[in-house]
Simulated assay, not measured.
Amino acid sequence: MNSPLFTKLSFSYFAYFGILGLIVPYLSVFLDGRHYTSMEIGEILAIFTATKIVGPTLWAMLADKSGKQLSIIQLGSGLALLSFTLLFWMTGYWSVTFALALFSLFWTAILPQLEVMTMISIRRSAKIYARIRLWGSVGFIVLAIIAGKVIEQFNSEAFTYIGWLILLALFISSLQLKQPRAVYKKSSEDSSLLSRLVLPSFLLFFISGLLLQVSFGPYYSFFALFLRDLAYPSYAVGLFISFGVVAEIAVFFVAGRLYQLFGARLLLVFSLLVTAIRWYITGHFADNVYILLLAQLLHAASFGLYHSASIQFVQQHFQSNQQNRGQAIYIAGVYGIGGAIGAYVSGYLWKDGFGAVQSFEFAAIMCLIASGLACFIVAKK
């Protein structure tokens, strides 16, 4: 793979996941700074996440018909930037919810097409994909740390300024990419998308992934507020989250080899079991800095390893003319439905911090159920 293309794809991942490095730790801080209750924060995050149910599928249908993933990425990043700009002026509950939902609707256009475009460009090499994708993790770390310091120095409203700048960088980076050539040859092995979706292995894979995302609800929604309530300094949020992402990066270096050795099923089951342990010790022992660091280290399995195995599973499961829709359905269902349920339930259980332990126990139970389902997945190495 030529160096300029590698650099451009890597920066696009850096910017895309840099936005996540801002949103995951600090969106709840931003909303808390505007004096919303934990229940209201849970509702806003649920609506924000629920747009992933519809958005990716609609964009993917357009991408599959046009064969132009890059155009969708550019349109999505541009409209996401414009939508995010509304947060500078909107302050009410419904207006902020609308702005975030609109932003998410356009933002969800980007990742499925970027994943497909990258896999086509690198000829589905798991090794090269891992090296490109790790720059997304670097972007997450950099933004999580920088945003934490900036918000601490100024106030929670700095969230909007940081987000706007990174979205602008993402849009500019999308203009530097080129659409790869991909020739689809129709063959006698072609099958309908629905026939691939209803196969037992995919259903088990889908449900287990959905439950994993439900389990992330307390972490994505309230981790920053959780640490604040435990008297950690404000900059600790970015540091703890970054520690987990560093572990995730290490996994990306070896993920391709692990997939070849063990296949999807074993990696998925292992990741889910480890994540169950992670949520339990987070809920019960987060006041101990060393145990919390250990819990964050387990992010290597709960996201890095699971994500790599999932992407490879989807690539193996769907045919070339189904890749955009396959990725979109996976993201829409798992991240959209699962994330929305997780955010809403955690908002209900959290009770302004008094239900923190119960929220993480619920998360651990979801992962245990998911690991049991994943045991029955049949997948190619």
Rank of each mutant, 00 (worst) to 15 (best):
N2L: 06
S3F: 14
L5E: 14
L5T: 13
S10A: 15
S12H: 13
S12G: 14
S12P: 10
F14C: 03
Y16I: 07
G18M: 12
L20I: 13
G21D: 13
L22W: 09
I23T: 13
V24W: 11
Y26L: 10
S28I: 12
D32I: 00
G33S: 03
S38R: 01
M39V: 14
G42T: 03
G42Q: 10
E43R: 12
A46L: 05
I47G: 12
F48N: 14
F48D: 12
A50Q: 07
T51G: 05
I53P: 07
V54M: 08
L58Q: 01
L62D: 09
D64C: 05
G67K: 06
L70K: 05
L75M: 04
T85C: 11
T85V: 11
M90D: 13
W94T: 06
A101G: 06
F106V: 07
W107T: 00
A109L: 11
Q113Y: 06
L114H: 03
L114K: 07
I120R: 13
S121E: 14
G136D: 06
I141S: 01
I141K: 07
I151Y: 07
Q153F: 14
F154C: 12
S156G: 09
F159K: 04
W164Q: 12
I166C: 12
I172K: 02
L175A: 15
Q176K: 11
Q179N: 04
Y184W: 03
S191N: 09
L204C: 04
L204P: 01
F205V: 09
G209T: 03
L212D: 05
V214I: 15
F216Q: 15
G217V: 00
Y220C: 00
Y220E: 02
S221Y: 00
F222K: 09
L225S: 09
F226N: 05
R228I: 04
Y235S: 12
S242F: 01
V245W: 06
A247K: 00
V254G: 08
V254A: 13
G256K: 03
G256M: 06
L258T: 05
Q260I: 10
Q260A: 14
L261T: 07
A264I: 15
S271M: 01
S271V: 07
L272M: 05
L272G: 00
A276W: 08
W279L: 01
G283W: 01
V289R: 11
Y290N: 13
S302R: 03
S302V: 00
L305D: 12
H307Y: 11
S308I: 06
A309W: 11
I311E: 08
Q319L: 15
Q319E: 12
Q319Y: 04
N321G: 02
Q323R: 10
I329N: 03
G333V: 08
Y335C: 08
I337Y: 04
I337T: 01
G339M: 10
I341P: 05
G342T: 00
G342S: 06
G347I: 02
L349D: 04
K351I: 14
A356Q: 05
Q358W: 12
S359I: 02
A363S: 15
A363D: 05
C367L: 12
A374T: 02
A374R: 06
A374C: 04
C375L: 15
F376T: 00
I377A: 01
A379D: 06
